[in-house]
Design a protein around this nucleic acid. Structure first.
Length: 145
DNA sequence: GCCAACGTTGGC
DNA sequence: GCCAACGTTGGC
């Protein structure tokens, strides 16, 4: 399994809206960046992802999973762009802020810190575990700890 | 609201 | 293929 991070500005598409979609999940449309698109093409069903609120909030608010493989983005006719679907799995019992991530030496190489503007990012396994620990969630059961 | 970082576009 | 201009992202 691979790990990822999706950024969204909450006034455009929030974690609350994502959760409201439930099991059905939702298309992660609107990505117009090659790097982000390429990461989505690498995703597999069941890959886990952090849901991060940018601009407002600036924190990881929940955990989602990839629920559909990358396919043409329905919001454009431009063949270059495709995207996955994701489904909300669990709230972060304690949202992990960007400030906390930056303050944690173990997360110094995390894309959230080093590639600030990238909206879909890979997360290494040890980073995944560390952010889960900070957020008070068990990375396996997704239950609060 | 500002502005730095950075990706994309287009002229040459 | 270079690089200046421009647009967008996102933290502050």
């Amino acid at each position: 399994m691979q790990y990822w991070l999706f950024k969204s500005e909450p006034f455009k598409w929030s974690w609350e809206q994502q959760k409201a979609k439930g099991e059905a999940g939702e298309e992660w449309d609107g990505i117009r960046n090659y790097q982000a698109r390429n990461f989505m093409r690498q995703m597999e069903l069941g890959d886990r992802a952090f849901f991060y609120h940018s601009n407002e909030g600036l924190e990881v608010v929940g955990i989602a999973e990839v629920s559909a493989l990358s396919a043409p983005d329905s919001t454009t006719d431009d063949e270059r762009w495709d995207c996955v679907h994701i489904r909300a799995l669990a709230d972060m019992p304690r949202p992990v802020t960007l400030k906390e991530v930056k303050a944690n030496e173990k997360l110094a190489d995390m894309s959230l810190v080093t590639s600030m503007r990238l909206s879909v990012q890979p997360v290494k396994e040890d980073e995944w575990i560390e952010v889960c620990r900070m957020g008070g969630i068990d990375p396996h059961t997704l239950k609060p700890v």
